[in-house]
């Protein structure tokens, strides 16, 4: 028997109540992700991307439907059981970072590894590696408030990867980055992907999405497209250099 998908949602629905008015944010999503896949989720603002990944990480409760992780049903878990699951196998990067304000950058990144039972030395080495890869080695002793938005965002990614989670959920991890920092993040994600970790990432950035194995598009809380990024369908005569068109 083949292993169960790492993520499987069945008719997943989330309806918020906004002053008595129901706001359907996710409307019947069936999403299967196999272990090791890199999936990008795209879609207009308000299409339900954050809501969906929050539910996959147990950070928001579903209204109806089912969520299965690694073959176990999880939408019925208690908060504390979710906390344990996240600590063991899920890394989460929030759209708005959520760093612990009164801890240094280094401590923010080491904390999840320590909570998961890593030795202080392992946690430190992992932190040094991750901050180094993201060009933040010299910011380790800073407080989050002293960092630029793009730096906080990279710290949030380092924190999410501290545990080598089998599932990385990331909400706009490059939203505040310039192209050089985006390149660092892409390189690190590439490594994480090659190591066999599963990545589900919300992004507006086509550069990021184009590296995924598969792109899922949401519109009004529903999946409207789901498929691999294939080869370019070229017109006859075109060549690789024609990707860039200079006007004459």
């Amino acid at each position: 028997m083949s292993p169960p998908p790492i993520v499987n949602t069945v008719n997943l629905v989330r309806i918020y109540q906004d002053g008595g008015v129901p706001v359907p944010a996710v409307r019947g999503v069936d999403l299967k992700v196999e272990a090791g896949e890199f999936v990008a989720i795209m879609g207009p603002s308000g299409s339900g991307k954050s809501t969906l990944v929050h539910m996959l990480g147990g950070l928001d409760a579903r209204t109806s439907g089912e969520i299965w992780l690694d073959g176990s049903r999880v939408d019925t878990l208690s908060e504390s059981a979710w906390a344990l699951l996240r600590r063991r196998k899920i890394g989460f990067v929030f759209q708005f970072f959520n760093l612990v304000a009164n801890m240094t950058v280094a401590d923010n990144v080491e904390l999840p590894a320590l909570l998961a039972g890593a030795s202080p030395r392992e946690a430190r080495e992992r932190r040094e590696y991750l901050l180094g890869e993201l060009g933040l080695a010299d910011r380790a002793d800073a407080a989050p408030a002293q960092l630029a938005g793009g730096e906080q965002q990279r710290v949030a990614l380092a924190r999410a990867l501290a545990n080598r989670p089998s599932l990385l959920l990331a909400d706009e991890p490059t939203g505040n980055l310039d192209s050089r920092n985006t390149r660092d993040v892409l390189r690190l994600l590439g490594e994480v992907h090659r190591d066999g970790q599963t990545i589900i990432l919300v992004t507006h950035d086509a550069r990021v999405a184009s590296l995924a194995d598969r792109v899922v598009s949401l519109l009004d809380g529903q999946i409207v497209d789901d498929g691999a990024v294939g080869p370019v369908r070229r017109r006859p005569r075109a060549s690789a250099g024609d990707v860039v068109e200079l006007r004459s």
């Binding site: 184009s210 792109v215 409207v224 080869p231 370019v232 690789a240």
Partner: peptide, 22 residues
């Protein structure tokens, strides 16, 4: 319309992947 948009999105993403490789 949805099919047209989906096809065009995939095309752009494939072009983007080429640019990444370039």
């Amino acid at each position: 319309r949805t099919a047209l948009i989906n096809r065009q999105r995939r095309h752009y993403l494939a072009l983007m992947r080429d640019l990444n490789e370039l």
